[in-house]
Design a protein around this nucleic acid. Structure first.
Lengths: 261, 261
DNA sequence: CGTTCACTTGACCAACATCAAATATGGTGG
DNA sequence: CCACCATATTTGATGTTGGTCAAGTGAACG
């Protein structure tokens, strides 16, 4: 049944990806052929290396499967920066100058190659903004949220993104993630992730079984983890960023001494 | 003496910013005038709000002073995402759709308004890549580095960036940051930042006095904090991202079970 | 000279990491 | 179907890191 769900997803991407190629009399069969000619596959665990530092930068769009951006320190510590879901682009980073971050397939991956994408259209800009927004969210998670909050917050983000591409059924969706991957994304140890999940299950926040997750009472989860959906930016933006005197008095005045000894 | 250093910096920015406006007979005085006409100021602690959600997006370049991007949670927790130094652009974010992150001046701020910057040139792309790179570094710091490592790592980044705009003298540079700001950037508590700094001082890693920092033996610091300068991307990129069997055996195979119950 | 803001320090505690071992689970070959 | 193996999850015991609370110090400033 999993393959079926993925196929539905693929066909929807055919339309959105190729719909603007030729508006003329190209038959649907032609389109499907053209689509599949550009499909590439990556095995789970393989590194997706693109933009071979000199070749034309190809832009890959994930059709099915999950990937992640990550970095590994010399001593083995790992940090996952973001998850890449169906519909997301794998940026052609690394072709430029900065590229100390790799993309690894977390499951078997199906991607379409859009070739060198030189012009940045409105949709591309929007996607880039959201991507950046997610990086900020991730920073907030790791810097200021507790383990329980981090897990919930990430699950809510994944729910929102998967929902947008039709991979959520009700409140339930599938995550092909190991607890170790989860830990590396959230900056926690596997053991502690395990215990945190246990706690969340026991307290009825979520239901996690065999790779699918069901979020119970999403608004409550959002409140408990300070999650701000991408939909309500404006409202959040209106909050006083530089706190006044009422809000815990944590204003940011001009410092009078700096990191003194 | 502080003002003097800043002024030197400003004049260098005049050249680089306005050098391409007119290659003809515009006198230097004219250039200076044109420059100063576009200068804006922000007080320390004030929020830099740009792109008033509908007006023309102006792009601001910091001439002198420090700012930061941050977010505050409803319960008062703060997270600083990045520091903005002289020469950095204050992105016109927020004018689009996502903007749950504010820019606050950490010191008195002098910025030039470049007006709406619609075309993205090579320099702009390069800057954007480095900015993103720094976000990744920050994520790595908060997710996988210890307190001591985080502090060193951040100091090294600041050194590198300040050096590039000529604000480092020898191994010493000034940071107008409160320990509280430092804490909010690194996801630690003020008290713990204090103790960490104390330790670093005592062990001779750095010398921090009255707002200026001297890094002792930068290569050793870099090694101790897993710092990778922006100069050696290639080398780092060549590291095996998806570890083989030699490197602690932490490969990323296809997960066979996923977040089971 | 008192007030304010930042830094400092000590005592105590909670969150999370680490180590080690036990227990599923799924895949594979017989 | 069963035995076996590798991988993942779970659990307990224990240690460390870093947070919180509270109080004290020192410098700048009116």
């Amino acid at each position: 049944m999993e393959g079926e769900a993925y196929f539905v997803n693929q066909s929807s991407f055919q339309v959105s990806t190729l719909g603007d190629v030729g508006s003329g009399k190209i038959s649907d069969v032609e389109r499907v052929r053209a689509f599949w000619r550009r499909v590439e596959h990556y095995d789970a665990g393989s590194q997706v290396r693109q933009g071979e530092r000199s070749g034309p930068e190809k832009q890959l769009i994930i059709v099915s499967g999950w990937a992640c951006e990550l970095r590994i320190l010399p001593d083995g510590r790992r940090q996952i920066f973001s998850f890449l879901l169906p519909g997301d682009a794998i940026e052609a980073r690394g072709a430029g100058s900065v590229g100390a971050c790799g993309v690894v397939a977390l499951t078997r991956l199906e991607v379409v190659n859009r070739g060198a994408q030189l012009t940045v259209d409105a949709a591309g800009r929007e996607a880039a903004l959201q991507r950046e927004q997610r990086l900020y969210d991730h920073l907030m998670r790791m810097g200021r949220l507790s383990a329980k909050e981090r897990v919930i917050h990430l699950l809510l983000e994944l729910h929102e993104r998967l929902d947008r591409v039709g991979l959520v059924h009700g409140e339930t969706f599938k995550i092909p993630l190991t607890q170790e991957v989860f830990a590396d994304a959230l900056g926690l140890s596997v053991v502690h992730i395990n215990r945190t999940l246990k706690g969340l299950r026991k307290e009825g926040w979520v239901c996690i079984k065999a790779g699918s997750v069901t979020l119970r009472n999403r608004p409550r989860l959002a409140a408990a983890s300070c999650y701000r959906s991408e939909a309500d930016d404006l409202e959040f933006d209106a909050l006083p960023l530089c706190a006044g005197e009422d809000r815990m008095g944590r204003a940011i005045p001009a410092p009078k001494r700096n990191l003194s000894a």
